[in-house]
Design a protein around this nucleic acid. Structure first.
Lengths: 129, 129
DNA sequence: GTGTTTGCAAACAATTTGCAGAATT
DNA sequence: AATTCTGCAAATTGTTTGCAAACAC
């Protein structure tokens, strides 16, 4: 079928991963772009999107669909839950333990295969309360 | 402030609500558009979007952000969880009871206000297994 | 009559893609 | 040398908006 591609490193991708690891606030693609540009001034937005897509497909980072338009990205790939603020749009980690048994539990009353779940809390962050 | 608008009925909006009530499969905006067009041939896509937005803001229908690009809409406004198939993209209701206490529970370890949560299961529906 | 809703088309935001050249193995 | 990756710009996708006419109250 597919997936025979060998991966070659690139300065751009390395910089993106390194940057994401320094941040706990789950930046969006354009924030990544703006920040990386301070290091690699002529990097293009397309490259950022391509790398974020590739990295999340490979499981090296997490893509967080946060109900708004823009996806957020997280270098912390351990499954965990998130919160999004309805006023400022910030995304934060939740302390709740990830419920490993939730998929199995849900599968008991579902006619199909459940592979994962996404739990997103909404409300107002402490700065916006 | 805002919210002084009085609402006037329209044939288009009535048709959209009526249509959504006949469906259990959470159609997207463009599916709604295509279907309503068989009844009101010159309805415009903009009108469909405007009405879906207005209806969900007023709480008459639910807007379901399902990780993909397109939002889905649901005439069943009782809080409940959904599943999205990673192959065909269909969206289905989950039988799991809605956890009313989840927000409060999560709030105990969170510095801010939690107003709601969204739980979305992923996997393969029975047609795609 | 006043104010909301519509159809249309153009505008928009976020993301993706085609291509020729540069970089990695 | 063989491919992957990049920058750029154009293309796509899903959705929103401005406006004058049509409609509801």
């Amino acid at each position: 079928m597919a997936e025979k591609t060998t991966i070659k490193r690139s300065r751009q991708r390395d910089a993106i991963v390194a940057f994401l690891k320094t941040r706990k606030d789950h930046p969006t693609a354009d924030v990544v772009y703006q920040e990386i540009r301070t290091i690699i001034p002529n990097i293009s937005l397309g490259t950022v999107y391509r790398n974020l897509a590739q990295l999340s497909e490979r499981g090296d980072i997490l893509r967080l669909p946060c109900d708004g338009k823009m996806d957020h990205f997280d270098a912390d790939i351990r499954p965990h839950y998130h919160f999004i603020c309805n006023r400022c749009g910030c995304v934060k980690d939740m302390e709740l333990p990830y419920a490993n048994n939730m998929d199995e539990l849900a599968g008991n009353t579902f006619d199909g295969i459940i592979t994962k779940h996404n739990l997103l809390f909404e409300g107002y962050c402490k700065e916006c309360m």
